[in-house]
Amino acid sequence: MSEEKEGLFSKKNRQLLVNPLDDNNPITVQVLGICSALAITVKLEPAIVMSLSVLFVLSAGNVIISLMRNIIPSRIRIIVQLVVVASLVILVDQVLKAYLFDVSKQLSVFVGLIITNCIVMGRFEAFALGNTPWKSFLDGIGNSAGYGLVLVIVAFFRELLGSGALFGQQIIPDSFYEAGYMNNGMMLLPPMALIVVGIVIWVQRARNTNLVETN
């Protein structure tokens, strides 16, 4: 077993953290989690809250699934995964409602979105079921960071061009509006999120030619 001797942050383990940021990004390369990327990127703040929630749920869920990987009956593994993610999310929501009420108000909208996020189920199925808890934890952090990165980029452009603001603060000066500048209402609607994600994918592949399909 070479795993035993492997350092906590060996090269292979670092890859688990870094790869999903670019080469194996869950949104732009694996094309997972698109629905939530459309739904909550109208403004920066909810996008960041969502990224942090996914970070928690995915890394904790990955560890739990990985710990149970040898005892989960393979025929009901998807159901087990769903139960783990759903109960984690509900548990977190309950605790927040009691102790961090204001955060829970922000988060309440995302509860359903986190449970149905295909990245969470995708990582449970593809990684945590076959790897050790520590690796699964790193994989969870890496993938949710990759997801969050794209979310923040998309939300940045949508809020800036759609509302003329960032984090709810007006950025585009009043003099622009007086000179005839108008916010692009289209940016607030889901189609523009797809187009922005498309542009992100384009820029990423122009820079990182390994990702370009050869056929």
């Binding site: 005892i71 025929r75 087990v80 548990l91």
Partner: peptide, 21 residues
């Protein structure tokens, strides 16, 4: 872990633990 009885028991135990928590 592929036996029917195991699958049923696993599901039952899991549901009870989750419901209790």
């Amino acid at each position: 872990t592929n036996k029917n009885s195991y699958t049923f028991i696993f599901a039952l135990v899991m549901v009870i633990i989750v419901a209790f928590t």
